[in-house]
Amino acid sequence: MNTVFIDAGRLRTELVLERLRPVADGIGGYTETWEEFATLWGRIEPVSDTARYFGAQPLEEITHRITVRFRDDIASGMRLRKGGRHFMILTVHDPDESGRYSLCRVREEGR
């Protein structure tokens, strides 16, 4: 398998990796709380944007590709945060199976 060239010097965006921690609400349900798990350096690249309509309300979706150094504890369902921006991780994979980098396909939330 060919090695994918990724310039490590371009990983200059500081990101916070967060995981969901459900907290019991005392009546059988829970509230969602995100806890900071790690701080990473990465590169954010926009991939696509779409707008669909649900009735008269537009539902916009913006996806990105975020490259970070390889970690085996990143999984879909977690999210990355940059300041006030939140990126829900949809998929994670090692582009050349070398254990050097992880590519995360993410959906930006709250925009």
Rank of each mutant, 00 (worst) to 15 (best):
V16T: 15
V47F: 08
T50D: 13
S48T: 10
S48R: 13
F37G: 00
V23C: 09
L11Y: 05
A24W: 04
L11A: 07
A24I: 00
V23L: 15
L20E: 12
R12D: 11
W41A: 07
E32F: 08
D49M: 08
R21D: 14
E14N: 02
T33M: 09
T50W: 05
D25I: 11
R12N: 13
L40I: 03
L40E: 00
G9D: 08
P46F: 05
D7K: 01
W41P: 01
G9M: 07
P22K: 14
V16D: 09
D7R: 00
W34L: 10
I6V: 15
G28K: 11
P22M: 08
G26L: 09
L20H: 09
A24T: 07
T3P: 00
T3K: 13
E36C: 02
W34V: 12
I6W: 02
L11I: 06
V23F: 10
L40M: 04
T31C: 00
T13E: 09
D7M: 01
P46V: 02
E35N: 04
E35K: 04
L15R: 05
R10F: 05
P46L: 06
Y30K: 08
P46S: 09
W41Q: 13
A24H: 06
N2W: 04
V23Q: 15
A8I: 08
P22R: 15
G26C: 05
L17T: 03
V4P: 01
D25M: 08
I6C: 02
I44M: 00
M1V: 13
E14Y: 01
F5E: 03
E36M: 04
S48A: 14
D49I: 07
G28A: 11
I44Q: 02
F37A: 11
G28M: 14
E32H: 14
M1T: 11
R21K: 15
E45I: 10
R19G: 14
Y30Q: 11
T50M: 03
R21V: 15
S48D: 13
E35W: 01
E36L: 01
L11F: 03
E35M: 05
T39P: 01
D25Q: 05
T50Y: 06
A8Y: 07
E14D: 04
L20K: 15
V47C: 04
D49H: 10
